[in-house]
Design a binder for these strands. Structure first.
Length: 360
DNA sequence: CCCATTTGACCCCG
DNA sequence: CGGGGTCAAATGGG
């Protein structure tokens, strides 16, 4: 792991400590897992283990971003000439960018467009040189109200008609979701006018009426984790939890789950995932039991070319409408859309959970 | 009437 | 100067 140079040593020590604790915790859970008798326990433990890993990794990655956003106390001297708060200052370039390829799977539902759990508003479309299909530009619906700088670009692949490339910017792929989710679940706040998707450039005319795509779980809009576009309703709802209902070799499965999930932390591109995340189904949400996660059985095959794309296993299905019209919805996800964070016990106040004041 | 999408114009950067 | 990205007026749906 590369520690960032500009991370202040104090900060780093803190992180190290945190990571250490988390990993230790994870190890303990893993030990317990081995001797766990009941399935429930195992699920619970597996979840805990994943949490630990997830948190640790998040912290580690977070530390990696510190140099881009010099933070208070760390390096007071910024070479930037402007005095704008660094947290807000985010040059496009320094924004993280995630790209994922979304496959359009024929023969499935059509009602939802690019439902990645976040609210996007289309603000442009452009023909790209050399590309057959135009590129769609989306920004976070809550850009104005909450200052979320998240954007995404959607473009249909030239070669493979069944592929759609989506790139996200200004989004933290990890962690941020949960505080958001939690807070939303807690309050039940739903904002209006959440737009899921918009038309898919290039899909409009020739789109297979029964298109469905799947992708890695896209990132939450990551402005300090406050941002509420990632409706709790969506986040975690369409997680393709395969095999959840096929509760056969569950034990074995749990191992696989962990293995896979942990493997996803591998910071390499082009991971092929088949994430199962039955763990998140345990509906023991602290804040509000009303929101239970009902998992839909999805055949999950998707690929993400992003490092953390599937870190939470919260992958989401993308459904494309047959027509180009955007499917927008105010608050309702399709049918049964329960809310829950895959990390119900995740602490929103986790020091690194909110990225308070930071924006990459 | 409100608000999201569309779409051509405009801007910025290489 | 060209292309990608964004703006904003027009459009249209609910």
């Amino acid at each position: 792991m590369e520690k960032n140079h500009s991370t202040s040593s104090g900060e780093w020590e803190k992180m190290k400590k945190e990571i250490n604790e988390l990993m230790t915790e994870g190890r303990d859970y893993a030990h317990q897992f081995g001797s766990a008798s009941s399935q429930e326990t195992r699920e619970h433990l597996a979840k805990k283990i994943l949490e630990s890993y997830h948190k640790s990794l998040t912290i580690m990655n977070y530390s990696g971003e510190l140099d881009q956003v010099s933070h208070g106390g760390g390096s007071p001297k910024s070479d930037d000439s402007d005095q704008e708060p660094l947290a807000i200052k985010s040059s496009k370039k320094s924004m993280p960018r995630w790209t994922s390829k979304v496959r359009i799977a024929p023969g499935t539902g059509i009602d939802r467009t690019l439902d990645d759990g976040f609210c996007w508003r289309k603000y442009g479309q452009k023909d790209i040189l050399g590309a057959k299909f135009p590129r769609g530009y989306y920004r976070c619906t809550y850009r104005k109200s909450q200052g979320c700088e998240a954007t995404r670009q959607v473009q249909r692949s030239d070669e493979n008609q069944m592929l759609i490339e989506i790139s996200y910017r200004g989004i933290h792929f990890f962690l941020i979701t949960h505080p958001q989710v939690n807070s939303q679940v807690a309050t039940g706040v739903r904002e209006r006018n959440c737009v899921w998707g918009g038309s898919i450039p290039g899909l409009d005319q020739q789109g297979d009426p029964s298109n469905q795509t799947r992708t890695t779980r896209p990132p939450p809009c990551g402005y300090r984790g406050i941002h509420s576009c990632s409706q709790a309703a969506n986040v975690g709802t369409t997680m393709p939890i395969q095999n959840l209902e096929t509760n056969q070799t569950q034990e074995h499965e749990n191992h696989d789950i962990m293995k896979e999930s942990l493997g996803n932390y591998n910071h390499q591109a082009h991971l092929h995932h088949n994430l199962h995340y039955p763990l998140s189904s345990t509906p023991n949400l602290e804040n509000n039991n009303a929101y239970m996660l009902q998992l839909r059985d999805h055949n999950t095959e998707f690929f993400g070319s992003t490092s953390f794309s599937s870190d939470l296993g919260t992958n989401i299905n993308y459904n494309f409408p047959a027509s180009g019209s955007a499917s927008h919805s105010t608050s309702n996800s399709p049918s049964t859309v329960p809310l829950e964070s895959p990390f119900e016990s995740f602490d929103p106040n986790h020091p690194y959970g909110g990225f308070g004041g930071f924006y990459s």
